[in-house]
Design a protein around this nucleic acid. Structure first.
Length: 848
RNA sequence: GCCCUCGUGGUGAAAUCGGUAGACACAAAGGACUUAAAAUCCUUGCCCAUUAGGGAGUGCCAGUUCGAGUCUGGCCGAGGGCACCA
């Protein structure tokens, strides 16, 4: 028998696919399209198991849809701008461009070795000027549409490195490289106006029927719509300051207000910039750290302005005005009224500064005189009191009434607020897409003319300077417009999330030079029919992509593809056991082995190894396995098979050598059985009941595999294949079936293998030499003539009965009562009721 | 703190509409083959029983139902998201 030589065979088919361009596609209006996309990788060096899983899942779908006759677009590219390239450049003295190029070459080769059905002619790379020049053009278009603007915001500033840090570069409030305390520094930066689409982004979420509910909920919470009202408070020292507008979702608690709090960045706070105490307070606030967690746990502190606001509904009440660290300028109006009895933060603040705590809502079942506020604010529903005309109303009734009153008296208005913030896209980095803006000597921003694009990223930079290398690159930074005007370039580059917000559009016309896309191409291919990736991108990447489509479609009569991803699938992570040595240091899996007692020891010096819980594979825990090494040992089909076999795709899977070796054995078994069946002679022997049994089983398998592929239940597909293999094996070993039936039916099984193990399937199918197809099942054959009826007594199974389908109820009851074990359980009691479910079950209810 | 999801053998998991729980695998134990090992194949799988069979059983406690892994309420546990959002 021929041995299945993995290396040669897998190489052979990969070369064949590549040479014949079997995966290259073009627009074909006569065919139904299917756009299958997996999130494109960052070229960090080598592929990891997470990639293997992601791309295997996508490839199964792409190949399956192709067999079903769809025109399948299945492209791949590189998210190739980003910080790691700059860090690697410094460490290895290699230019980011070279480092990136090298990594792409390696990873492309690795992806090809997985046997993915990618149309490599459509490969794109976001750091390629051919890609980012279109992005710069889009930026200018958004600028024209007023969807881009500049404003001052805070960044993490590392004073030692003289550079801006990303949030993940701040560890315990210190710069990751310098170890120096990070400061909050104000910089003028570019923003995309994503808030403009808040309501639409929220509304359209509901229409995304094939998105996981979890992801939709996360986006919904992120957008964070809340209903409330704005109320104007006049300031007692009226001549000095304007009124204060506050936002609240609990206007019903207005009579419990005891202070006003403003954000440090509130316009009124600016008037205290010369006050030493205020400056001290402000610097205290900026030292508190920039991470959200640090902010949330920080103590509530305030600065007393000695100003007072007048209660809008009772002029006798004067409320002290504080500037407080817990009020955010970029939510609501940057000002609140504090009602300590019904808000925990306000209560903490009130106790610290000895402010009044007046409860105005009591729980329904507690009387007014028995209700007091101690250390916990009462935030639930209840009945209003101490509240003038709101007394005795419920919270919701009171909210309605107070909004009406405030509106009538022109003291404020109903207001809907979103938590979603505008998208800051400026990055003070080298390795990113240059922002196509220059500044004249007055500091005005001037957009570059479209005909002058692209603004190329200079290659001769010194990455070892402190701060942003572009800012130090004087010959690039200072330039002259075609008009002769001397200008300074914007030295910020775009957030890499911008690159990935439209790459799926570019895949439709990857070589179109004139513009980012060709209209006829996207009209055919968009939207992405199935998008597959990790749940870690549930919010930002997906929301930004949804925004970008809206921004492109805004004021654009031709482009109306609002939702980019019709269906979304989020796959689980790849986990592995963790190992530590006696010194509590992590060990790689290939440093560990089992000794003869079955205990884990180090390979090197046979020292004890402590086994830890399985965790998501990560370099820091060293619980990683190199896909390339695994493919070399077991072959791509085995790796793919294992990735699909154990857990459902949406759940985490645990990598194990036992698992992958089992997959490998099964691939070999399939090949062996295939050879045996193909080597059998053709013969026309009579059709026996075993032939029918096999035919029916294959038919059922086609039905199940098709159904389970449609539902992403790939682990069950694997089980279906195992089952049908086991049946074939039994038939072959025991010579149960005629050779013709074996051959005919096996052919269909090899087609079912194609999406999962394409190399093996092609090799098996090669000798049959017919066109690939997706086998159809015969619904008539699914119907069994007989069915097995479960016989229960008092809800407990006491036997089964095989009967022709649709037998008469009376007949089944009669036969059921003849089963020995049933007789045993009914003879000492009387039957008071029969339950009969057609073709399924009989249940006798007895009474002693 | 708020919101969401999930709890099924030693392990990963199956289980249309409420209708035979544990398909399919991994691991383990026993056996066959073998000089031996590997590989391969077979059997077993919680409790009682020699077998036939019976019992318990899908995190825990209740409920609905002839019948609950599946539906309802409460509790416990694990994971994830958000986090001064007024």
């Amino acid at each position: 028998m021929e041995r299945y030589n993995i290396k040669n065979i897998e190489k052979k088919w990969q070369d064949y696919w590549s040479k014949k361009k079997t995966n290259a596609v073009e627009v074909d209006k006569d065919k139904k399209k299917f756009y299958c996309l997996e999130m494109f990788p960052y070229p960090s060096g080598k592929i990891h198991m997470g990639h293997v899983r992601n791309y295997t899942i996508g490839d199964v779908l792409a190949r399956y849809k192709k067999l079903k006759g769809f025109n399948v677009l299945h492209p791949m590219g590189w998210d190739s701008f980003g910080l790691p390239a700059e860090n690697a450049a410094r460490e290895n003295n290699l230019h980011p461009k070279e480092w990136t190029k090298k990594n792409i070459e390696t990873m492309k080769k690795q992806l090809k070795s997985l046997g993915l059905s990618i149309d490599w002619d459509r490969e794109i790379s976001t750091c390629d000027p051919e890609y980012y020049k279109h992005q710069q053009e889009f930026f200018l278009e958004l600028y024209e549409k007023n969807l881009v603007y500049k404003k001052d915001t805070y960044v993490n500033w590392d004073p030692a490195e003289q550079t801006v840090l990303a949030n993940e570069q701040v560890i315990n409030g210190r710069g990751w490289r310098s170890g120096v305390m990070v400061e909050r520094k104000k910089l003028s930066q570019w923003f995309f106006n994503i808030k403009k689409f808040s309501q639409n982004l929220l509304d359209e979420l509901e229409k995304l029927k094939n998105w996981p509910e979890k992801v939709k909920l996360m986006q919904k919470n992120w957008i964070g719509k809340s209903y409330g009202c704005e109320i104007n408070f006049k300031i007692f020292e009226e001549n000095k300051f304007d009124k204060i507008k506050v936002f609240t979702t609990r206007p019903d608690t207005i009579f419990g207000a005891s202070f006003i709090a403003l954000s440090v960045d509130h316009p009124i706070a600016k008037n205290f910039e010369r006050n030493k105490n205020f400056l001290a307070f402000k610097s205290e606030c900026s030292k508190m750290g920039t991470t959200e967690e640090a902010l949330a746990n920080a103590e509530k502190i305030g600065f007393n302005t000695d100003l007072f606001a007048i209660h809008p509904l009772d002029k006798k009440i004067k409320l002290p005005i504080y500037i407080a660290n817990f009020v955010l300028m970029d939510y609501g109006t940057g000002a609140i009224f504090g009602c300590p009895a019904h808000d925990q933060r306000d209560l903490d603040f009130a106790y610290k500064y000895k402010l009044k705590v007046l409860p105005v809502v009591r729980p329904k079942n507690i009387e007014v005189d028995k209700f007091t506020i101690k250390n916990e604010a009462f935030t639930e529903d209840g009945i209003l009191f101490n509240s003038n005309f709101l007394d005795n109303l419920t919270v919701n009734q009171a909210i309605q009434k107070i909004i009406n009153v405030i509106t009538e008296k022109k003291l404020g208005n109903q207001k809907i607020t979103f938590r979603l913030k505008d998208w800051g896209v400026s990055r003070q980095r080298y390795w990113g897409c240059p922002i196509p803006i220059v500044y004249n000597n007055k500091g005005d921003a001037i957009p570059i003319k479209k005909k002058d694009l692209p603004v190329l990223l200079p290659e001769d930079v010194d990455l070892n300077v402190k701060g942003n290398p572009l800012e130090k690159h004087t010959t690039w930074k200072y330039t002259t417009l075609s008009s002769g005007e001397k200008v300074i370039r914007e030295t910020d580059t775009l957030d890499t999330f911008v690159d990935s917000s439209w790459y799926f559009v570019r895949f439709c016309s990857p070589k179109n030079e004139k513009y980012g896309y060709k209209l006829s191409d996207i009209k055919y291919w968009m939207p992405v029919d199935q998008y597959i990736g990790g749940v870690e991108h549930a919010i930002l990447h997906l929301l930004y992509s949804r925004f970008f489509m809206r921004a492109l479609a805004f004021n654009n009569k031709q482009f109306n593809y609002i939702e980019p991803f019709k269906s979304l699938f989020t796959q689980g992570m790849v986990c592995h056991e963790t190992y530590k040595n006696e010194k509590n240091q992590w060990l790689y899996p290939n440093e560990v082995e089992k000794n003869s007692d079955g205990n884990l020891v180090t390979k090197k010096d046979k020292k004890r190894v402590v086994l830890g819980s399985p965790e998501a594979m990560s370099k820091s825990r060293k619980n990683i396995v190199d896909p390339e090494e695994m493919i070399n040992i077991y072959g791509a089909d085995s790796i793919r098979w294992f990735m699909l076999s154990d857990s459902p795709p949406e759940r985490d899977v645990q990598w194990s050598l036992e698992g992958v070796s089992a997959a490998h054995k099964f691939i070999q078994k399939l090949w062996k059985l295939n050879s045996e069946i193909l080597n059998k002679n053709k013969e026309n022997s009579p059709f026996k009941s075993e032939d029918i049994e096999l035919k029916k089983a294959v038919n059922k398998t086609i039905y199940n595999v098709t159904k389970n592929l449609d539902n992403f239940q790939y682990n069950v597909v694997v089980a279906n294949i195992h089952e049908i293999y086991n049946l074939f094996y039994d038939h072959v070993i025991n010579n149960k079936t005629s050779n013709n039936t074996l051959k005919n039916e096996w052919e269909k099984v090899t087609m079912l293998l194609m999406p999962l193990a394409p190399h093996l399937a092609c090799e098996c199918y090669e000798k049959i030499n017919k066109k690939f197809y997706w086998p159809k099942y015969d619904p008539k054959l699914l119907d069994e003539e007989n069915c097995i009826i479960v016989v229960q007594v008092d809800g407990r199974k006491r036997g089964t009965l095989e009967m022709p389908k649709n037998s008469k109820e009376a007949k089944i009851i009669e036969k059921s009562k003849e089963i020995d074990n049933v007789i045993k359980h009914i003879e000492s009691s009387s039957i008071i009721k029969n339950i009969y479910i057609k073709n399924k079950l009989v249940n006798f209810i007895t009474k002693k």
